[in-house]
Deep mutational scan, measured.
Amino acid sequence: LVRYRTISKIPQITLNFVDLKGDPFLASPTSDREIIAPKIKERTHNVTEKVTQVLSLGADVLPEYKLQAPRIHRWTILHYSPFKAVWDWLILLLVIYTAVFTPYSAAFLLKETEEGPPATECGYACQPLAVVDLIVDIMFIVDILINFRTTYVNANEEVVSHPGRIAVHYFKGWFLIDMVAAIPFDLLIFGSGSEELIGLLKTARLLRLVRVARKLDRYSEYGAAVLFLLMCTFALIAHWLACIWYAIGNMEQPHMDSRIGWLHNLGDQIGKPYNSSGLGGPSIKDKYVTALYFTFSSLTSVGFGNVSPNTNSEKIFSICVMLIGSLMYASIFGNVSAIIQRLYSGTARYHTQMLRVREFIRFHQIPNPLRQRLEEYFQHAWSYTNGIDMNAVLKGFPECLQADICLHLNRSLLQHCKPFRGATKGCLRALAMKFKTTHAPPGDTLVHAGDLLTALYFISRGSIEILRGDVVVAILGKNDIFGEPLNLYARPGKSNGDVRALTYCDLHKIHR
């Protein structure tokens, strides 16, 4: 019993810090008490220290592992850092350059016999395009090294910054494609005289377009951006097909006994025919423009016929181009109408809503002055909100995010209106959640004399007048207030005048 009563005193000691020596009952000389009392004092002292730490809000209350900052290894790049964003855009520009100039170089340097010394005699450094290609190869190699040090988000939505895990993730992902696209074939085969082989191998750079397509997928929600990307894709495919079309004609031209190829026909049409040795002929500019003209006309199913396939190889390629053109029509131009419709969806919704308003007016036989006010209010409210119901949009977000959005939407009023000066951010967040926005066209009466005042109004834009009878008592403008002081009276009061809008007004109100 003594032991039980001794232990039962522990909660009292913990909360009230009572010393055991003052209790005459606990001072009985028993061996059990002498053993338990020192333990009680020690526990009391420890609990006292913990309570003191909690009340003082000291940093040592938290466990040590929670006080440590997340460790980022040296030379690790955050995937959302500004440097990584700028670097990704730079790589994107280099990939676009590669997609345009690599097929052009591979096709127009394929057994090209233009006048001038061969590239091997001039030297590697004197070729501007080769120098640019070398810079692109170096940048792609540097990009691989950067990807080995860039964080990523795993399946659990955690940012991984450990170098080993980053390397394994990159090896399992895009490393092989990036490595093949970054191989400097110019340096590996330079001086061997195989410019045709170098041009063909350099087309491996186009593998990076797969990554670019995935990154550009984030802009699919913007109709104008999608339309622009589709047109660029169409032009890029036409450019690639033009390079292939020229390569076919250029390879067949020296081996044909009869002059029936499209390059021969082009030379005869523009007065620059090929001679018996295969030299001469149109310039590279004429060849490229004509090839691009043929691919565009074939892809769009126009086909004027002034550039036509004559050999079997050219006919087979033309059939493939027609098939590609039909697929592009289905996948690209078939979506253009939907994209344009999405661009004008706001206008369509406006006309639909206006039609419903006019049908309501016609069905209920609203008189002319009231009908005009109804239409003007709808037009003004639509121009202010673009038909978007803010309350319906915010309803799907958590309250903390709703408060931040409301604070942002009402920031101008909260910053410049005098009653809100000096208020804490928590108070402003709470008030912003209570605001209701209303609009009024010129001549609209917001409050009639004798109406119950259940709200306090803040003028965000425009001006109003307060009338008693036919006498203008006051004219209020931006950041002015009218209405009933909230919670100042037990019952809502009545208006002693009319409140009429002089201009288009936007008002925020808080109800009782």
Rank of each mutant, 00 (worst) to 15 (best):
Y65P: 05
K66I: 07
P70V: 06
R71E: 13
R71T: 10
T76Y: 07
T76W: 01
S81H: 05
F83C: 12
W87L: 01
L90V: 11
L94K: 01
T98C: 07
A99M: 01
T102C: 01
T102V: 07
P103Q: 01
P103R: 01
P103K: 01
P103E: 01
Y104F: 14
S105G: 01
A106L: 07
A106R: 01
L110C: 15
K111P: 14
E112F: 05
T113F: 03
E114I: 09
E115Q: 06
E115I: 15
G116S: 07
P117K: 10
P117R: 14
P117Y: 06
A119H: 13
T120H: 04
C122I: 01
Y124S: 03
Q127N: 06
P128I: 14
L129A: 09
A130P: 01
V131P: 01
D133G: 07
I135G: 03
I135V: 05
D137H: 03
D137M: 01
I138S: 03
F140D: 01
I141S: 05
I141H: 04
V142Y: 01
V142F: 09
D143A: 01
I144N: 01
I144R: 01
L145H: 01
I146S: 01
I146M: 03
T150G: 01
T150S: 10
N154K: 08
N154W: 03
N156H: 10
E157S: 11
V159M: 01
V159R: 03
V160I: 14
S161Y: 13
S161T: 12
H162M: 09
P163I: 04
R165H: 05
I166Q: 01
A167K: 01
V168K: 15
H169Q: 11
Y170P: 01
Y170L: 01
Y170C: 01
G173F: 04
G173R: 11
G173V: 01
W174K: 05
F175K: 01
F175Y: 01
D178P: 01
D178Y: 01
D178M: 01
V180D: 01
V180R: 01
A182V: 10
P184G: 01
F185C: 05
F185Q: 03
D186M: 11
D186W: 10
D186R: 13
L187K: 15
L187W: 09
F190L: 11
F190N: 12
G191F: 04
G191T: 09
G191H: 14
S192I: 06
S192L: 05
S192C: 11
G193T: 13
G193C: 05
E195I: 15
E196F: 05
G199M: 08
L200M: 11
K202R: 04
K202M: 01
A204S: 05
L207T: 13
L207E: 01
R208W: 01
R211G: 06
V212S: 04
V212E: 03
A213R: 10
K215W: 04
L216Q: 03
D217A: 08
D217E: 09
Y219I: 11
E221T: 06
E221H: 09
Y222E: 04
G223H: 09
A224N: 05
A225P: 05
L227M: 13
F228Q: 01
L230C: 09
L230N: 14
M231L: 05
T233F: 13
F234S: 01
A235P: 01
L236M: 09
H239D: 01
H239R: 01
W240S: 01
L241M: 04
A242N: 01
C243S: 01
I244V: 08
Y246C: 01
Y246E: 01
I248Y: 01
I248R: 01
I248F: 01
M251C: 01
M251Q: 03
E252K: 03
Q253V: 13
M256E: 15
D257F: 04
S258H: 13
I260G: 06
G261P: 01
W262F: 01
L263A: 01
H264D: 02
D268G: 02
D268S: 04
Q269G: 01
Q269D: 01
Q269T: 03
I270N: 01
G271K: 04
P273K: 04
Y274H: 01
N275G: 03
S276G: 06
S277H: 09
G278M: 01
G280V: 01
G281A: 01
S283P: 01
I284F: 01
K285W: 04
K285D: 01
V289A: 01
T290K: 01
T290F: 01
T290C: 01
Y293R: 01
F294S: 01
F294R: 01
T295D: 01
T295N: 01
T295Q: 01
S297W: 01
S297Q: 01
S298W: 01
L299K: 01
L299A: 01
S301C: 05
V302W: 01
V302C: 14
F304V: 04
F304W: 03
G305C: 11
N306T: 01
N306K: 01
N306R: 01
V307D: 01
V307M: 01
V307F: 01
V307N: 03
N310V: 04
N310Y: 01
T311A: 01
N312Q: 01
N312T: 01
N312Y: 01
S313F: 04
E314D: 01
E314L: 01
V321R: 01
V321S: 01
G325E: 01
S326I: 03
L327D: 01
L327K: 01
M328L: 14
Y329P: 05
A330L: 04
A330W: 07
I332D: 02
I332Y: 06
I332G: 07
I332T: 03
F333A: 03
F333W: 06
N335V: 03
N335R: 08
V336G: 03
V336D: 01
I339W: 04
I340V: 10
I340N: 01
Q341D: 09
Y344I: 01
G346H: 04
G346Y: 06
A348S: 06
A348Q: 13
R349I: 07
Y350Q: 07
Y350P: 01
Y350R: 04
H351L: 03
H351A: 05
H351N: 05
T352W: 11
Q353L: 07
Q353E: 10
L355Q: 13
L355I: 07
R356C: 13
V357T: 04
V357H: 01
R358I: 01
I361A: 11
R362T: 03
F363P: 01
H364R: 03
P367D: 10
P369E: 09
P369Q: 07
R371I: 01
R371A: 12
Q372Y: 13
R373M: 06
L374F: 01
L374I: 07
E376Y: 09
E376W: 09
E376D: 07
F378E: 07
F378L: 07
Q379H: 15
S383N: 10
Y384F: 06
N386T: 05
N386S: 05
I388Q: 12
M390D: 05
A392E: 07
L394I: 08
K395F: 04
F397Y: 06
P398I: 01
C400P: 09
Q402E: 03
Q402G: 02
A403M: 05
A403R: 04
A403Y: 01
D404E: 03
D404V: 02
D404Q: 03
D404N: 03
I405E: 02
C406M: 08
H408I: 01
H408V: 03
L413E: 01
C417W: 09
K418V: 09
P419I: 15
P419G: 10
F420P: 01
G422F: 15
T424I: 01
C427M: 09
C427V: 10
C427F: 04
L428G: 02
R429D: 01
A432N: 01
K434S: 04
K436E: 14
T438E: 08
H439F: 12
P441N: 05
P442N: 02
G443Y: 01
G443R: 03
D444L: 07
D444P: 01
T445M: 09
V447D: 02
V447A: 02
V447M: 12
V447C: 06
H448P: 01
